[in-house]
Nucleic acid binder design. Structure first.
Lengths: 232, 232
DNA sequence: ATAATTTAGCTAACAATGTTAACTAAAGCA
DNA sequence: TGCTTTAGTTAACATTGTTAGCTAAATTAT
């Protein structure tokens, strides 16, 4: 598929629109990104943007997909130096990368994990695969560690079964993750902790606990891994 | 402080405005609450609302405070039948109440814990005390249980210290919570888990794991309590 | 009771927003 | 060269929050 000159120009314009949108979100904050403001900064009229995105929601969706990919790339890059079987170290590095990306890409994090923009609902068939790219990285490590026999499931999780667990196992099998129910449960809980702590910190809901600090977050990640028998 | 007739009328109008706002948020969804729509439903003109709230943000703040109080009340009511020293049961009941309130008051939950409404920033001096009313309930139980010697701090947390921990201890002392650093840490992590899991569920970020279910959440709460040596 | 004042509401208007319609000029292709 | 597609324009509409200026009612003071 060769790109014609026109297609190339079009693509750079699309990228510029998204870049300007991201910058403006970062500056004047959050969800009130304005097509008109974007157009103005680019020196063109607002309706011209409709040549590139059907409507505002399509633009938002594109930004969300980009954000997911940016996060996923950042997480992948964070484990470059670490041995493939140092599961605890790998997991911790990705946890810290997750938070770091969130802090340095506030608006994009909010775009992904925060309240949907007013009136906007993400089309799952587009955003779900993009989302999976980042959070499956945690799953992957746990799966690898499990297969290598390095994970010990804490007693409080052993023997816990429910219809939901069986269903979860099925869903994960479809994605080639052959993990026992308690481990899936642990993984999801971990995901909840990570996302929850970062969200609390980012939304300022932890402000009355004092200023933000890596230490608390890191300690919690380490504690989580220790519980699974993974050293860092 | 006797209320004059005028003040009473005014108060009922204020309450009606908030009620209509809540209903409309619940119906047509989230953050796009419209002063004009509220006014229209109440059979008055939009500018009339400015007699009751200086601007939209003030209205939002009032809704947030109400939401916090509603949540706090619901949590308080959830433990009516439970013995004062059944700490695990108390904590679990409040956890379940938290999620239940969130599911049945979606928009209000989002208002509190989600991304701030576009352009809106909550004044901390008003919202923080209201927030504390709900989440201190978790703290209170842990504090009571700790003083009763019923909590055993897991090994992975013991001996973890940091400047942040010392600061946290100070902050909590100011609020009359005399808890050791690791316990505070555990409490905050628990808060992260609870809020994180409910958020994930509510924002549909867990949809690819299957439909929502009380079981997963409840199991995670129980596991958390077990880790502290609290039976449910 | 009458006069003064405060309050609750109105309409009109302004500056934004997303979006559509109708049109123009340029680029690419037969 | 002529036809079609594309990128852009301006004008306009229906929304939004908000301010200004006015009216009529309710309360308070004389």
């Amino acid at each position: 598929m060769v790109q014609t000159r026109r297609e190339k120009l079009r693509e750079t314009t699309v990228e510029e629109i998204k870049a300007v949108a991201r910058r403006q979100m970062g500056e004047q904050g959050g969800a009130n990104l304005s097509l008109r403001a974007i157009a103005a900064e680019m020196g063109m009229s607002a309706p011209a943007l409709y040549r590139y995105f059907d409507n505002r929601d399509k633009l938002v969706t594109a930004l969300i997909v980009d954000a997911y990919n940016s996060l996923a790339d950042f997480m992948v890059a964070s484990t470059g130096q670490i041995a493939n079987d140092a599961y605890g170290k790998l997991f911790l590095a990705k946890c810290l990368a997750f938070r770091e990306w969130a802090l340095f890409n506030r608006e994009q994090f909010i775009l992904i994990f925060g309240t949907p923009i007013p009136g906007y609902h993400a089309p799952p068939e587009i955003t779900t695969p993009a989302a999976w790219r980042s959070n499956s990285q945690f799953m992957q490590i746990l799966d690898d560690a499990w297969k290598a026999g390095r994970i010990s499931i804490p007693t409080e999780y052993q023997g816990l079964t429910s219809p939901l667990h069986l269903k979860l196992v099925e869903i994960f099998k479809q994605r080639d993750y052959d993990m026992p129910a308690p481990l899936i449960h642990i993984a999801m809980a971990g995901w909840g902790v990570i996302q929850g702590l970062v969200s609390l910190e980012l939304y300022g809901q932890m402000d009355y606990f004092g200023e933000s600090d890596t230490a608390l977050y890191q300690l919690e990640c380490i504690a989580y891994l220790k519980r699974l028998g993974l050293e860092t």
